[in-house]
Amino acid sequence: MVTTALEERLRDLAGSVPDPEMPVITLAELGVLRGLRLTGPGQVEVELTPTYTGCPAVETMSADIERVLHDNGIPQVEVRTVLDPPWTTDAITAEGRRKLTEFGIAPPRPTGPAGGPVPLALAIRCPHCGSTETTLLSRFSSTACKALRRCESCREPFDHFKEL
């Protein structure tokens, strides 16, 4: 697909929208923006993929993308949700991972060849003190995409963006 300079600029704009639940990271860094193309004058189609099937943030993301594109002269924006290929935490960029850590969320480890929970081989580092002595409190946390852990060194609880 040929991408025009305008499409590239609009894609950058859409990608710069912050994630509604973790506003330190952008949609581009989260890896959920799949594509953007002009379908006519002032008319754009955006493809967005959810992190989790039931992620309630998708609707806010769509609305935020529409708003930023409207503000930049595109009156007609259609955001489509696509599932295939499924999103994986490997789609989060290096910069995104750095920002998550800074925000107090341990970033996901690289996923294995098969889907599902990763055997606890690699240590998960505490985003506050950097210790690798951390334990799992719950596989499920404040949002679908996170697990709850506790640091055994500084005793702080923290969220871990779990591998998917």
Partner: peptide, 21 residues
Amino acid sequence: LAPLAAKAVKEVAYHRDHAEQ
């Protein structure tokens, strides 16, 4: 149903793991 299944199977792996534990 394949696109949904491919997406959801990864979520359900956590549900199954939770139930097993």
